[in-house]
Structures are given as structure tokens and as C-alpha cells.
Design a protein around this nucleic acid. Structure first.
Length: 506
RNA sequence: CGGGACAUGGCUCAGUCUGGUAGAGCACAGCGUUCGGGACGCUGGGGUCGCAGGUUCAAAUCCUGCUGUCCCGACCA
């Protein structure tokens, strides 16, 4: 009884975007909140995404000469104190370990005991501890460059958290490199950003804008910070990856010195770069619809689910046999850098079964019943199309075409996201227009509004700050492809030579 | 860390004002009927009402303290 529900997720994106995001994660079984404040449990369907991200990115790093290593979770407090700007940036969100033992209290409760002489900081990032290693590994220009990456967890004690987008503990990779000259380090910074951009676009189907951060948004201690920025469906920007040129700041703090070919003692030039589980939040918010998430096939937790339709007991045997055979044939095929992953769902829960897989965002659903066996066919539905758009293919056609179909979905998701980004990216030259663009009509509960504004900026931090203060809008980046063009700052009217990207941000 | 709200089964909540046997819907399990557009019936399992004190013959309900969560600010991959 009751009216059929129109969408699988309630509320819809238009009704309440932040709430939609939470509900989508719940419905898709990606992750859940943990009993620990601000932390999350990543469930198998969500962790598979991360595994696929890791596998692909890891390969991309290694092609550029990067090797993996692992550094400690704990950083001596004194290490963190070495770089002034770095301390400034992270001091307010560090978890600190002060004891190394638990003792039974009078009521049997456990009390921390054995105070450490030097407190240990749970890494918020590893520049300082990796720098310490680098200082020991490097003594000659012949030792350079050193190109290291680690896959790890880090902790930043955030005030407000959201699953995947901002959690107190998150998974990421952090690359750290040291070079003999500035030029090479600058090139590496840019190279890794390009790796991220290519990964985001080709694997996550996220169109991104590459650019440089303004001084106020720079990584604490960096000389320059490069980033990729993606537009979510609420038209806010999400920083999906960053690459930092650290100059000699951290080399000086950690004593990374080497003897040059000219026999002089020099400080190394270092870089660091990272992407995190936040990317998954970006995938959810870019591609999801009111029926749940839509996984890009390249990183999808699984590619296709087979749904046997069994009406009578007599059907069971032939339908299951047909299904198992199809699964075997599909698993022999390769898409991207892995074999096709096939799920078989035999649960007898009626139509709810298909909807669960829609909510989980699996790229392809295949229904297999007596009719298909009779016609040697399959009944196929694509997650990037409406749930009703199912069509029949012969078994052979399907096996032959599945890789192309997956690729078509991948491309379609990217094209849609790019179209959306273009639609909501506008050049704005008038201050009033700018304010109007970023002011919701309903201030109580802001509707989806705004987008990326390409506007002139004089380069002054004070303008940036006032814009942030008044409109909650920040400079996301100074795009690499910005053309030199005479104009006036959107805020103060002083002359400016190029446009930057403004947006509300996550 | 400042201002506000809340805490009852896995989830969403009623019951609290006016103290007296712990409730509903959804979810879950079993059986049957179903199944290619989100099924239905019957039966069943599951909660010391956030924690610790106090008042009382009696506390989910009243009082005190604590903890946690959410919303709004300051901070952020």
C-alpha cells in the first residue's frame, strides 16, 4: 500500500544536498560512523573503491620512478617544532600521545600511566619524520633524487566532520621527494599534479581544474601549492588533490644536505603531494543521483551483478547454471587494469534486490530468467540510465560488448560532469553580480546556487579575506590555463592581469 | 572552544509536563504465497530507556553532575 516512492534516496539532492549525501552513503553501504568521534568505518563496498584507487595510482607513481616505503605513525614533538609555518598550520589539530601504559584504578577502570618524557604526535602528515630519514639517506648529489611514497593513515583532529570528506582519521598517500636543484623539484611538483589530474579524469570521471593556490590557501610551510579542483553537484568546489613545492624550507628544518658536484654543501629541494579517501566523497557528490551513487566503472567495487529470476522450483537449476556460466565467461575478460568483477545475488527478496544494487551504484545489472535462457539472451540495465531503460542482448553480444559498455558509462559520467561544470562556470566582472551569484534566495536553508566564478583578482590577501568574510567564497585556484588579460579586481577595482577561480568550497 | 537542541530495540520516533507491567513503524528471522517496476500474510526474536549519583514504597519520567550526538559560529586534505 501507499504511494510508490519516486526516488530511492530521500531527501533528493535538490531538497537537501548535505542530507542527501549522508543518506546516499548509508544506502550504498560504503561506510558508517564509528563510536570514535569523527572517525568512520569503511565497509567492504567502500573499501573496494579505495583498493582500486590505490592500485591504479600506485602504478602511475611507480612509472615516474617513485618507490613505496613506510614511516612511523608517531612523530616526536620536537620534529614538528622545527618548521615554524608547519607548526602554526597543524598545532591546533594534533592528537598527542602522552602515556604508554594503562593501570587498574580503584574501581577497576583503566587509567593511563607511565608518562612519556617526550610526547608523541600522531602524524597529521609526515614531512618532518620523512625529512629526518632523508637527512640520513642523502649525502651526495649522487643520492638524488629520492622519490618516496607511503600509503598511510593520518589524524587531524577536526571540529566538524563528514564521512569521506573530512574525518579525524583518514587514509591517504603522501609522496615525498628530494632533489638537487630547484628546477627539478618544481617539475616534480607539477608532474605529480598532472598524474592526479589524469587519474581524476580518466578513472574517477571527475573533470578537474589544475591550478595554484593563493598564499592564504597554501600548505603550511610550502613555497607553492598546486591543486586540482572539482565541482560537485551543489556547485561547490572540492579540492581533490594537492602537490607542494617546499623549496628548501623542510630541508633546512630537517637538515637534508648534500655535497654538490662542485663540492659545495647545499640544502635539498623537496616536494610533497597527496590524495585521500576524500576523493571518494568527490565521486559520490559528482556522479550520484536521487537513486544513490553511480560508480565509475574503472574504480567500481564491482562491475556487474547477475540477478537470477526464479519463479518456479523447476526454473532454479537451469537459471543458476546459465548464470554461473555467464559469470565465468565475464570474469575472464579484463577492463582497465583488472578482471571484470561479477556479483551474483540470489536473495529472494523481490524487487528490492534490484534497487539495492542501484543504490550501491554498480555499473551494470543483468536479469536472467527463463525467458532469457529460451532466447539465449540477457536483460541488461545500466546505472547511468534510468532504471526502466532495460534492454535485451544476446549472451554473446553481451560478453563481447561488456568492456565497451563499461567504457561508455565511464565516458558518459565524465561528459555529464564536464557539462555540469561548464554550465556553472561563469565570467563575472561586476561586484554586484558577483555578490548576487553567491547569495542564496533562501538564507535560512540555502538552495543550490553559485558555481565557479572566473573573476579578476588584484593579488591582495585583504580582498580575498573580505570576500571570504562576506560571501563565504574563496579563491580555489589560479588556473594554469588562465589567459593574461587586463581587468580590474572584482572586489577593490585595482588592475589585475588574470582571472582566478572563486567558489564556495568543501 | 562559545550559543542552542537532543539522547528510549539495528533505524525513525511516541511515552517524560501529571512517577505505577517498555510501545509503534521500518528493518531482522521462520513458514507460506510471490517474483522481469521497490510484494503480501501469519508467527517470532530483540531494549536494565546515554552514564553516575540523588529524591521516592516505586524513576524512561523529578533533581544534580558527567559523557556523547546534531545544528549555528571560529578552524580545515
Amino acid at each position: 500500500m501507499g504511494k510508490p516512492i519516486q526516488t530511492a534516496i530521500s531527501p533528493t539532492r535538490a531538497e537537501d544536498y548535505p542530507e542527501w549525501y549522508q543518506q546516499v552513503i548509508k544506502a550504498s553501504d560504503l561506510a558508517e560512523k564509528s563510536p570514535v568521534r569523527g572517525c568512520m568505518v569503511i565497509k567492504p563496498w567502500g573499501y573496494a573503491l579505495w583498493e582500486n584507487i590505490m592500485r591504479t595510482l600506485d602504478g602511475m607513481f611507480k612509472i615516474t620512478g617513485v618507490k613505496n616505503a613506510y614511516f612511523p605513525l608517531f612523530i616526536p614533538l620536537s620534529f614538528l617544532e622545527k618548521e615554524a609555518a608547519h607548526v602554526e598550520g597543524f598545532a591546533k589539530e594534533c592528537a598527542v600521545v602522552t602515556h604508554h601504559r594503562l593501570e587498574k584504578g580503584p574501581k577497576g577502570e583503566l587509567i593511563p600511566a607511565g608518562e612519556l618524557t617526550e610526547p608523541l604526535v600522531v602524524r597529521p602528515t609526515s614531512e618532518t619524520i620523512i625529512g629526518d630519514s632523508f637527512s640520513k639517506w642523502i649525502s651526495s648529489y649522487r643520492d638524488l633524487p629520492v622519490l618516496i611514497n607511503q600509503w598511510a593513515n593520518v589524524v587531524r583532529w577536526e571540529m566538524r566532520t563528514r564521512l569521506f570528506l573530512r574525518t579525524s582519521e583518514f587514509l591517504w598517500q603522501e609522496g615525498h621527494t628530494a632533489h638537487a636543484d630547484k628546477e627539478e623539484a618544481v617539475d616534480r611538483t607539477r608532474l605529480m599534479l598532472d598524474v592526479y589530474a589524469r587519474f581524476a579524469e580518466e578513472h574517477l570521471a571527475l573533470p578537474v581544474i589544475r591550478g595554484e593556490k593563493s598564499a592564504s590557501e597554501r600548505f603550511p610551510g610550502a613555497v607553492s601549492t598546486l591543486c586540482i579542483e572539482a565541482m560537485m553537484q551543489d556547485r561547490k568546489a572540492l579540492q581533490a588533490g594537492t602537490s607542494h613545492f617546499l623549496g628548501q624550507n623542510f630541508a633546512k628544518a630537517s637538515g637534508i644536505r648534500f655535497q654538490s658536484a662542485q663540492e659545495t654543501e647545499e640544502f635539498a629541494w623537496t616536494t610533497s603531494w597527496g590524495v585521500s579517501t576524500r576523493m571518494i566523497g568527490g565521486v559520490i557528490m559528482s556522479h550520484g543521483d536521487d537513486d544513490g551513487i553511480i560508480l565509475p566503472p574503472k574504480i567500481a567495487s564491482s562491475h556487474v551483478v547477475l540477478l537470477p529470476i526464479i519463479r518456479k522450483d523447476d526454473d532454479r537449476r537451469p537459471v543458476m547454471e546459465y548464470t554461473e556460466n555467464l559469470a565465468r565467461a565475464l570474469r575472464e575478460k579484463t577492463y582497465g587494469n583488472r578482471q571484470i568483477d561479477v556479483e551474483i545475488d540470489t536473495r529472494d527478496i523481490g524487487g528490492a534486490r534490484g534497487w539495492e544494487w542501484i543504490k550501491k551504484g554498480i555499473p551494470l545489472r543483468v536479469e536472467i530468467g527463463p525467458r532469457d535462457i529460451a532466447g539465449n539472451s540477457v536483460f541488461l540495465a545500466r546505472r547511468d540510465q534510468s532504471p526502466k531503460e532495460k534492454k535485451s542482448l544476446t549472451r554473446e553480444q553481451f560478453i563481447e560488448q561488456i568492456v565497451d559498455i563499461l567504457d561508455d558509462i565511464q565516458k558518459n559520467l565524465f561528459d555529464r560532469a564536464l557539462e555540469f561544470q561548464k554550465q556553472h562556470t561563469v565570467k563575472i566582472d561586476d561586484k554586484n553580480d558577483f555578490s548576487r551569484f553567491y547569495t542564496p534566495e533562501n538564507t535560512e536553508k540555502p538552495e543550490i546556487h553559485g558555481g565557479f566564478a572566473l573573476s579578476h583578482w588584484c593579488g591582495e590577501g585583504s580582498c580575498e579575506e573580505m570576500i571570504k568574510e562576506e560571501l563565504k567564497v574563496t579563491i580555489r585556484c589560479i588556473p594554469f590555463d588562465a589567459e593574461t588579460e587586463a581587468g580590474t579586481c572584482i572586489w577593490c577595482g585595482k588592475p589585475s592581469s588574470k582571472r582566478v577561480i572563486f567558489a564556495k568550497a568543501y
